[in-house]
Design a protein around this nucleic acid. Structure first.
Length: 220
DNA sequence: TGCCAGGCCGGGT
DNA sequence: ACCCGGCATGGC
């Protein structure tokens, strides 16, 4: 079976089992970007609380958020963990919007995708996964997002090696699959859903897993 | 009660 | 080019 066929088979299995995920779980492109930074090495439920804080305080926009004093912002981010680090990272992102795009998230996002990605990677605290999450889920451009789950899944299938880096894993998907944002969006969302439900438990439900293996087994 | 979650950076080899 | 410690909360 070709790599393309294997990747599509995995995708179809997940889609059949879980149904369309319709990601990213956010109301606006800006909220996607904020969530992408806050969810770094952090459970999504914690991120939701931090976002809820921002919404409650009516500061969930690039200009209003930027006007907050660092202490205040960090306090609102507290439930997401690493709140001091994330305050700086979020602020650096807001500075980019302010300084290079007149405070307009739309202007940031409607750039050519390659250029957008480069610009995001230039921000301290935005790495490849975070940048690609924004490019795919906020700007709608076809960049495959690679996370820990994704890597484990590919290893378990013998499609990637444990030592493979981000770029290598990403290239596997992007070289084998049609470059469609719709597909990349849904595929990544399904992988995360699989990870949440089937990887975390110490006693995984092998019977109910839509794939015939578990991504957490002996591959990290 | 530890271990872990949708990373990333900076410093050391 | 890797490897590692640090960052922090809340759920299981």
């Amino acid at each position: 079976m070709s790599r393309r066929a294997e990747l599509l088979a995995i995708y179809r299995s997940l889609l059949a089992a879980f149904g369309p995920q319709r990601w990213w779980p956010a109301r606006t492109p800006f909220e996607v970007c904020v969530g992408a930074i806050l969810t770094q090495n952090t459970a999504w439920t914690h991120v939701e609380r931090a976002i809820a804080n921002l919404r409650r305080e009516r500061v969930l926009g690039p200009r209003k958020l930027r006007r907050l004093a660092p202490r205040r912002l960090a306090g609102l981010l507290r439930p997401a963990g690493y709140f001091n680090v994330k305050e700086r990272r979020l602020r650096a992102f807001l500075d980019l919007i302010h300084e290079r795009h007149g405070g307009s998230i739309r202007r940031l996002l409607r750039q050519e995708p390659v250029r957008l990605r480069e610009e995001l990677l230039g921000v301290k605290g935005i790495g490849k996964e975070t940048a690609d999450s924004m490019v795919l889920y906020a700007a709608g451009a076809p960049r495959f997002v690679v996370d820990a789950y994704t890597h484990r899944v590919l290893c378990r299938h013998g499609l990637a090696a444990p030592g493979d880096g981000y770029d290598a894993v990403q290239a596997l998907f992007e070289d084998a699959l049609p470059r469609e944002a719709r597909l990349y969006n849904e595929y990544h969302a399904l992988l995360v859903h699989l990870g949440k439900d089937y990887c975390r438990s110490r006693r995984p439900r092998c019977e109910s897993c839509p794939l015939a293996w578990h991504p957490h087994e002996g591959t990290t």
